[in-house]
Computed example of a mutant assay.
Amino acid sequence: MQTQTHELRFTTTEVRKRFLRWSDGEADREWRCLNLIWEHAPGVAPRPLRRETESGHPVVIMERLPGDPLGDKPLTREQTGSLGQTLRRLYRIPLEHINSAGISERPYGPSTLPQALSGWLSKTNDFSRCQNPKQVAVGVETALEWLSRPDALPSPRLVGLGISDLNPANIVWDGQTCRLVDFEDGGLTDPAYELADHVEHIAGRLTGVFNPASLSEAVGLSEVERERMRAYQPLWAAFWLVMLLPGNSGFLRNAPGTTEAQASHLMKLIG
């Protein structure tokens, strides 16, 4: 899994985002999402300013937002409320405008991730570098068995725009308002699927940044949508188990025992 897709340069008023390649379309997704949001939900994300090419690389220049990225502490009530309102505004951008902007399903969206995960989990893995190889192996087997169930996941829905990557570092807080940055993986999605992704993101879950119940309430999910969110959480827990396996970048970036803890968390969600 590639961990670096871009380089950032800042001025007092602008952020210059230089992408390392054209092939995966990150620059196009970012530009289209930012323009759509600026037209239909201004203030949710940076205002797009211009596009350039630098040394053969695509560049997106956007306004620099006030405030600082959120860290590794649980959100306050005010932050949760503001983030919920910001996400709600994002999800309410009309579907016809998303389609007319040429924005397709997000990478690893609800129609593609389950099959991809089954393939990743089915690969022959060497768990010997884990602290408890048996526990990790059981976690992988449990995930594969769960994914094979016909009733494990809701039917995919593509009804709104999502940011995809809600690493807490992609939420800028100015003391009153949460705004979102990094839409290179943005695209069509299901709000319940997005929130499951967000609360299971390893960068936020291990430090308790998001409270799943509080965030889903702040976004305004219905009870049916909350059930869909809970159904999708094991999917994203399995995704992070894959990322934490030996040979993937998350294994080296996290403390020993994190993979075992993730396997345990996944099995608890599956029940």
Results as ranks from 00 to 15, higher is better:
M1G: 01
Q2W: 00
Q4D: 07
T5H: 01
L8A: 01
L8W: 04
L8F: 11
F10H: 07
F10C: 00
T11P: 03
T11H: 06
T12N: 09
T12E: 13
T12Y: 00
T13V: 04
R18G: 02
D24T: 11
E26P: 00
E26L: 09
A27R: 01
R29L: 09
N35I: 00
E39K: 07
H40V: 01
H40F: 12
H40R: 11
A41L: 00
P42Y: 01
V44L: 01
A45M: 02
A45G: 06
L49T: 04
R50Q: 11
E52K: 09
E54G: 01
G56F: 02
V59S: 04
V60W: 09
I61D: 07
M62I: 09
R64F: 08
L65D: 07
G67D: 04
D68T: 15
L70A: 07
P74L: 04
L75S: 11
R77Y: 06
R77E: 15
L83H: 10
L87M: 14
Y91T: 02
I93H: 06
E96N: 07
H97E: 10
N99A: 09
S100Q: 14
S100R: 13
I103R: 05
S104K: 08
E105I: 03
R106N: 05
P110S: 10
P114G: 05
Q115E: 13
A116Y: 14
L117C: 02
G119M: 10
W120Y: 11
W120F: 13
F127A: 03
S128F: 04
C130L: 10
Q135S: 13
V138W: 10
G139V: 09
V140N: 06
T142A: 15
T142L: 05
E145W: 14
W146Q: 08
L147M: 08
L147I: 06
P150A: 08
P150N: 07
D151K: 05
L153T: 07
P156A: 13
R157P: 03
L158M: 12
L158R: 06
G162N: 14
G162D: 13
I163Q: 15
S164W: 15
S164R: 15
L166I: 08
N167M: 06
P168G: 05
A169F: 11
A169T: 14
A169Y: 12
N170D: 07
G175L: 05
Q176E: 15
Q176Y: 12
Q176W: 11
C178M: 10
R179G: 07
R179A: 13
D182L: 05
F183Y: 15
D185I: 14
G187W: 06
L188Q: 13
T189Q: 13
T189I: 14
D190S: 05
P191S: 05
P191A: 08
E194M: 06
E194I: 09
L195K: 06
D197W: 15
H201F: 12
I202L: 15
R205K: 12
R205Y: 11
T207R: 15
G208D: 09
F210H: 12
F210A: 03
P212S: 06
S214T: 03
L215Y: 07
G220P: 01
L221Y: 03
L221R: 02
E227T: 02
R228P: 01
M229E: 08
R230K: 05
W236G: 00
A238H: 01
L241V: 00
L241A: 02
L244Q: 08
S249V: 01
F251Y: 12
F251W: 12
T258F: 04
T259C: 15
Q262L: 08
H265N: 12
L266R: 06
M267Q: 15
